[in-house]
Design a protein around this nucleic acid. Structure first.
Length: 204
DNA sequence: TTCTAGATTCGCT
DNA sequence: GCGAATCTAGAAT
């Protein structure tokens, strides 16, 4: 049983504190934190249970890798930490990242899966009743009503917020290569909560 | 201007 | 297990 299912109140940790250090440290620390979405009067909350780190210009798998440079799409990754980098993939799925690092250091953490704890029926409706409410980056985006208008948003204030949650112990954290990437496909930068049913598919 | 691959998901076989 | 859906950024021409 995860602590967020046991009636324990979430820790009141400021976002800036969650963002200290390198993207892989942040990706690890964001496990157990909350993602809160409040659009059109509908509040939905999920606990982050799966993340991937993208390490900046030296990371060949990043949208901001050195060979790509700064472009219109990845511009928000070069901005301040604590803002969102949202992009459309395969013409239909919105993927949500938390920007880390300082201005000019394009690091980010992709949010891959949530354990829904509030507004589950809303998320389920947005997902058209399909299985896997927020299990996978595209599903997470759909469940939380994330789209291009969320790009560059400050995640320390509504309507889209990342906030403290419940610390996850080291022995409960799994690490693996990132899913779906074709470059640097053996770098151990995916982090997930072991045993949580909402963690998405296995690495290829 | 045209082409191609992509940090995915879903439904069908 | 496999292919379609759907569209944009970035690359090629």
């Amino acid at each position: 049983m995860d602590p967020w299912h046991e009636g324990v109140p979430p820790a009141d940790v400021p976002l800036v504190q969650l963002l200290e250090g390198s993207a892989d440290q942040v990706a690890r620390r964001l496990l157990g934190a909350r993602l809160i979405s409040e659009f059109e009067g509908e509040r939905t909350v999920g606990v982050i249970v799966e993340t991937e780190a993208y390490l900046g210009t030296d990371d060949p798998a990043s949208h901001a890798a050195a060979r790509v440079g700064r472009t219109r799409r990845n511009a928000s990754m070069f901005g301040p930490a604590g803002h969102a980098y949202v992009y459309l993939i395969y013409g239909m799925h919105w993927c949500m990242n938390v920007v880390t690092g300082g201005v000019g250091d394009p690091s980010a953490v992709l949010l891959r899966a949530l354990d829904p704890i509030e507004g589950c029926e809303i998320m389920s409706r947005r997902r058209h009743g399909r299985r896997g409410i927020a299990s996978g980056p595209g599903r997470l985006g759909q469940a939380m009503r994330i789209d291009g208008s969320c790009n560059r948003r400050d995640l320390s204030r509504p309507p889209l917020t990342v906030a403290g949650g419940w610390p996850v112990a080291d022995e409960t954290v799994g690490v693996s290569p990132r899913i779906g990437v074709t470059r640097a496909d053996d770098w151990p930068l995916r982090f997930y909560v072991r045993g949580n049913a909402h963690v998405s598919g296995k690495p290829r």
